[in-house]
Structure formats: structure tokens, C-alpha cells
Amino acid sequence: MKTDTSPLFLGLLGVTVLVLAQLPLFCGSSAASEKSFLGSVKETTAPFDTHSVQQVQPIVEATVPANERYQGGSFRVLARKSHIQRYKCSSCHTDKKVLVKNGAALTHGTVELSHGSDTNVLKCIDCHHPEDRDYLEDKKGRKIDFDHSYQLCGQCHFRQKRDWTGGAHGKRVQYWAGERVVYNCTTCHDPHSPRFEKRYPATYAVPLN
């Protein structure tokens, strides 16, 4: 009788030992995860050569070098002037007189301005240069190019600009590797009404299979 039960007992013991050995793997504490890959991620301070990634193609869209630097050095932003329909502004904003019948087409009647708080809505010349219409102007009176509008936006939205420079706001264009090219503020936001409009989602979800 004894000889019959002992292998069974040993077997059970073995299974228990195996199960116990597996337990820490399933109930890994946060201390264990800290030791794992996050530690090696934090320790990696050597720069990674993003140009080592093969098959990165140049961005097709027009870009300009940014007047800022991020943690990895210089970067580029998407150009904006080519997307402004009536640029160059000085082609209309001259001393030349206009006929009243052309007035409706020439004024910016399509621009809906909803930028700023309800009590303090921004006006055109809060951002646009009052004299040189081909440029923007910040509150310190500096001329700012339309391609570098982030310099103007950043005077109020400095937190967003800090995030954008680092990479927590906005996004890169097409590639995570290669030279850093990011969206300009006005690529995504309409500067005249910067909040995204409400709309229906692009698709809908079905229950999981």
C-alpha cells in the first residue's frame, strides 16, 4: 500500500512545486517590472541614429527648417504659405482703390473668427501684422513668417508649444525615423477657429468576436 501511494504523493508534490515556481511570473509586482525592460530603456542614453533605418523616403510636401530645436537637435515643419489660398497678401493689400462691386469678393467674409474667450475674442490684427500683410506679428512686435506660425501661437499657448517641440502634442509626418518633420500648428488647427468641430465618427464598433 505504501509503495503505491508514495509515487502519487511525490508526483503531487512535484506539481505543487512547479505551480509555486510559476506563481511569481503571473503575479509579477511593479518592482519586478521596474527591473525588467523599463530599467534598460531608462539607461539607454546613447543617441540612436534614426538615419540607420532603411527605406525612409524624403517627405513629398514642402517643409521648412524650424526656428526651434528639440531634444534631438534641429527639425523641420510643414510649410504653410503654399496652402494659403490668397497668399501673397500684399498683392491685394495695396494703396490701389477697389470698386464697391468687388468688395464682397475681396474682403475676408468667409473667415469665421472664434478664437479666444467669449468675453475677449481675438481680432485680425491681434495676430496679423497691421502694416505688412505678408507677415504675422506677435505681442512683442516681432514679424513672424506664416511658415513659422508656431512662434506666434506659442506666445499664449506656451504649454502646447513646449509639448509640440518635445513631441507630446501634434505629430510627425509619415515617418518615426529619419529627419524629424512635424505638422505645423495651422496644418491641423484653423487659426481663426482652432477648436475641432463636432462631427460623427468615421466608423463604429461591433461587439467583439
Partner: peptide
């Protein structure tokens, strides 16, 4: 091939960030 995932590229609000964890300069 160095490209961003389709979800990151499509996101209209920039809520998605993708990159190399072993690159100290990455987003």
C-alpha cells in the same frame, strides 16, 4: 521601414505618439 503606424498617421488630433523607446531623443 521607418513609417508611422496607420492609426498614428490617420489621427486628426495628434493623440497618438509612436517611436523608439531606445532613442533618448524620440517623442
Amino acid at each position: 521601414k521607418g513609417r508611422l503606424p496607420a492609426c498614428v498617421e490617420a489621427c486628426p488630433t495628434g493623440a497618438r505618439v509612436f517611436g523608439n523607446l531606445l532613442d533618448p531623443d524620440s517623442e
